[in-house]
Amino acid sequence: MGLFDELIEASGGRYIRAGLTMLLVGAVVLGLLSVNWPIVKGLDFAVLWQFRWALLQGLVMTLLLTAAAAACGIFFGTLLAILTQVPFAPARWFAIGYVELFRNTPILVQVLWIHFALPLVSGVNTSAVVSGVIAIVLQASAYFGEIVRSGIRAVPPGYWEASDALGIPRTTRWRRVVLPPAFRIMIPPFVNMTISFFKASAILTVLQVGELMTVSTRIANAVFKPIEILTVAALIYFVFGYAISQSTHWLERSLAKREGR
């Protein structure tokens, strides 16, 4: 038994558990008493089966958006992170300003800005999907860039010094010495960030880009069955989001195996 378990037990763990169980039972009873039974009895989940292909398409779109955000985010994010290290000051300012701008405003505002305001400046009208992808990639680059930056900083200074002392060329140093351990440190934040963008993809529903949330709300409005459809949509999001979060362990384990630990 760990010390924390001992602390919890000594703090009246069993009374806390009993209290929580009572609270739970109370909440369930209250829920059952106040729920609108006619509505619950009328629930018809068959409608989901009817729209299974549309929902599947929406899910695929969500996953594609997530993958695009993660892949482009890591790529451009790494470029941004390297930009923050170059000696040329304006490049550094640009990278830092970019990251801060996108990290400190809501993605919804960015999406709306890119779809509604940017065409007024650029004169180019973009379709909803294109605006959505641009917005999510721009934001992903900023967030992933920040992770890469702190990952590089977390590489022990000894690695840089040792490769200097050994006279290892600059590109080899980045490729073989600095980036591998940095990426290793970055795995958990990468996975977390991927989940964030999996969630953020649902925000693109404001532009109706056809991902799972767009599809769900469309169906829900068309057949007026919001409870069935939105509840299942939430569960689908939960299952996939949870699966992504569990991939951390898997990724870390397979990396560890490759390094022979």
Binding site: I39, K199, I203, M213, I227, L230, A233
Partner: peptide, 23 residues
């Protein structure tokens, strides 16, 4: 659950399902 589902989904669910479910 509430950390994993998108906030928009949560917001829509509460807005359009909760009132129906509980009248």
């Amino acid at each position: 659950f509430f950390r994993t589902i998108p906030e928009v989904v949560l917001i829509f669910w509460v807005y359009s399902c909760l009132p129906l479910l509980f009248g």
